[in-house]
């Protein structure tokens, strides 16, 4: 019960961050460097949030939304990784699986955008006195549906991923992980993003 409420709380907060991606503003509140540390603080694990923020921000830094290209969602990856990491050593495994859900969110986003196309006729066919009102309603719809979609997504994914990581990782491979010093990965992983970030500037 306590855990369910916790997931509900995180989902409602994460939903707000997701509004920044497309629906309102693009102030970059949804970037991993902002989201991960804040979720980390809320979870009582600021250090986890900070390291996830650094790694994820750098990993996704050169992925940009151009035209109809929709990139995998970095906000999802940041939120899921922080919430599913109870300690620093969990971060690499949580990140490994969270990235997959970043792709899943992308496809849900594509589905929503396709559905949006179907709503345009509602304005096209509106009588003169209703046109402005319907445009305004479409904006409210977008705010509502995006928030709802995101909250539901997290409410479904968080328990699954959290359970999977805690059960599979903690029971099966954790001892081996610690024995082989694999927790050191958290200090190395930012380098992957650094290389990607440098390549983004150097290539051009």
């Amino acid at each position: 019960m306590k855990l369910s409420l916790w997931f509900l709380f995180i989902s409602t907060i994460a939903g707000l961050f997701h509004l920044d991606v497309m629906v309102f503003g693009q102030f970059m509140f949804s970037r991993p460097i902002v989201v991960a540390p804040i979720i980390g603080i809320l979870s009582g694990l600021p250090e986890v949030g900070l390291i996830v923020g650094i790694i994820t921000e750098l990993l996704y830094v050169s992925i940009i939304p151009v035209g109809i290209k929709i990139p995998p969602d970095s906000t999802t990856v940041a939120v899921l990784t922080v919430v599913c990491s109870e300690r620093l050593i969990d971060i690499p495994v949580a990140l490994f699986f969270a990235i997959i859900f970043g792709f899943l969110y992308k496809y849900i986003d594509i589905a929503q955008r396709s559905f949006n196309s179907l709503l345009l006729g509602w304005v096209d066919t509106a009588k003169a006195e209703l046109v402005e009102q319907r445009v305004n309603l479409l904006i409210i719809y977008a705010l509502f549906i995006t928030y709802l979609k995101t909250v539901l997504f997290y409410l479904i994914v968080l328990p699954i991923l959290s359970f999977f990581i805690k059960q599979v990782f903690c029971c099966w491979i954790k001892n081996l992980w610690v024995h082989m010093d694999l927790y050191n990965l958290i200090y190395i992983l930012p380098a992957i993003g650094i290389g990607i970030g440098l390549a983004h500037f150097v290539e051009e």
Partner: peptide
Amino acid sequence: LFLQSVWNYERMQNVGFVF
């Protein structure tokens, strides 16, 4: 600030622009 709210594959940012 709501320009991309109802982004769609058919006309993209048209709703936000008109809004």
